[in-house]
């Protein structure tokens, strides 16, 4: 079975993919759907959802359109998810590759650093980092990236360690290719599959992490995110449920979609595992 057909065989993964594409569409089309700022106070506060056509999902405590916030939030939340994952990959992949490729004391030292970051409770570290750097989209992305790279490094190291002994890598070493070139051209491309699987899940965790930071008052005050909306509406769960419910659903669907796609990729990219299904 090829990759595509294996992926398509997993119904959950397909549902996830459709959801994800829809979300990305929202993110891209957001400014066109809702050209004005989502922070604008446009109507009576606490307008219930599905009552007027103009404000389909109701308005919040200050009379801001929940739907506009949701759509603009899609962009920022997904952006934070992807960029912070990218940051984590930029740290984790090279560290893991170096550790796995060279082994010895380099491996030892790099793995100590990884262990170091895995020992500190990651959410606590993220909180401290954002507090130190002051809340802004940059500090949030950086903090999430810094606390999420260790698993990447471990994964890459493991993969590289096993790839290193393969014939084609040994051959490359024998013909005298430079170490960097071997790592980039022979080793890393073969680790892409598991990295992609892991990254899809990391995007999901990053979105959740941002919402938690936002809840603790450590969000970027100038950007509308889902986490901000859920946090700001939480005291009105009893009588204005829609303010935090819709962004909550958005987070749920996104995380779900990314997980399903990740699961599907995992099964599709690891044919070894699907043998268990005979």
């Amino acid at each position: 079975m090829g990759f595509m057909s294996r992926f398509a065989a997993n119904k959950g993964a397909l549902v996830g993919l459709v959801l994800l594409i829809a979300l990305l569409a929202f993110a891209v089309l957001g400014p066109w759907l809702y050209p004005t700022s989502p922070w604008r106070m446009v109507a009576r506060p606490f307008t219930a959802p599905f009552v007027t056509d103009r404000f389909l999902l109701g308005t919040d405590t200050l009379g801001r359109d929940v739907a506009a916030g949701l759509v603009h939030g899609t962009r920022i939340s997904i952006l934070i998810g992807f960029v912070s994952t990218l940051v984590a990959l930029l740290i984790g992949v090279p560290l893991g590759a170096l550790a796995g490729y060279f082994g010895g004391w380099i491996d030892d030292a790099l793995m100590r650093i990884t262990e170091f970051f895995q020992t500190i409770p990651s959410f606590a570290l993220a909180i401290v980092l954002v507090a130190v750097l002051q809340p802004s989209i940059y500090s949030i992305v950086l903090a999430i990236g810094i606390v999420s790279w260790p698993p990447v490094a471990r994964l890459v190291r493991g993969e590289v360690l096993s790839l290193r002994t393969r014939e084609y890598v040994q051959a490359a070493i024998t013909v005298g290719q430079s170490t960097l070139r071997i790592i980039f051209s022979q080793v890393l491309p073969n680790t892409v599959a598991p990295i992609i699987v892991m990254a899809s899940l990391m995007v999901a965790s990053a979105i959740l992490l941002e919402s938690s930071l936002s809840f603790l008052g450590l969000g970027d005050p100038n950007l509308m995110t889902w986490g901000y909306m859920v946090g700001a509406g939480r005291t009105r769960l009893m009588d204005a449920w829609w303010i935090s419910f819709f962004p909550g659903v958005a987070i749920f669907l996104t995380v779900l979609a990314l997980n399903l796609v990740g699961e599907g990729l995992n099964d599709a990219l690891n044919p070894r595992l699907s043998r268990g299904r005979e």
Binding site: L208, F215, R234, G248, T254, N259
Partner: peptide, 9 residues
Amino acid sequence: VFYATPLFW
């Protein structure tokens, strides 16, 4: 469901 919904919510 419980993983994907913000914990505080």
